[in-house]
Amino acid sequence: MSLTEHQRRPWRTPSVLPGFGVTFGFSMFWLGLIVLIPLAGIFTWAASLGFSDFFSILADPRILEALKLSFGGALIGAFVNTLVGPVVAWVLVRYEFYGRGIVDAVIDLPFALPTAVAGLALAALYAPNGWLGAPLADAGIKVIFTPLGVIIALTFIGLPFVVRTLQPVLADLEPEIEEAAATLGATRWQTIRKILLPALLPTLLTGFALAFARAVGEYGSVIFIAGNLPYKSEIAPLLIIIKLEEFNYPAATAIAAIMLVMSFLILLIVNLLQGWARRSTGYAG
């Protein structure tokens, strides 16, 4: 009896509110049409290539270099943001100073600025005669048309992900925790290192993952400053576009598919790390 009850348990709990069929049906239809079916297309395309074709495309050194740059640059950018982001979030949450509201709003600039505009601006800023490019050039550092330029662009777009993830968590930490550490004789540095950082670790990993995911696929803010020299400062998304312009759909698809898979793997690792950090620290991320 209980088994039949269980089997009959409806997929949806009945409700008095009308309109589920229409709204749900429309949502699924639209989601399928715009997102799911086109996305699935990339995998059916990749699958139709076959293993040997797939890997012989990816063995092209130009593609390998581009993938290395996209993933390496994204990792470095996300890492830089994971170092700088906590300081920025700390200052914004813990200190009161004139103009804090404005500084806080500025953090969202990379979200709000169209990527092409950001890319144009970065290219002008770091050009050999640019505001920052000139002094850097004097110091013998070339940014534009180098991997360093790519890293700077990927750092630029990743910052808000880390800061915005950290801020609410930092604001919610109980002040008593820090007071307890102080009464027990810990110095401020010891409190930060042994108490606050472990508490923020899962959140930091989340911020890292978000910044990384965004940076891997980034296109607009990178291409202007990168200069796109093959084997040197050419990112994988740009290579997809180049392959498409050559009507080489298989190569474009292979690059896209490997990017999706690698991003997924890296995010999976971060997720596992996060789970580990959360379990071993008792703090939710």
């Binding site: 109980e174 007071e179 307890a180 102080a182 009464t183 508490a199 008792g282």
Partner: peptide
Amino acid sequence: LRERRVGFVFQHYALFRH
């Protein structure tokens, strides 16, 4: 605070969760 050496028990304990 360190020199005072005061044993303080907080209302919500403020234990280090990690």
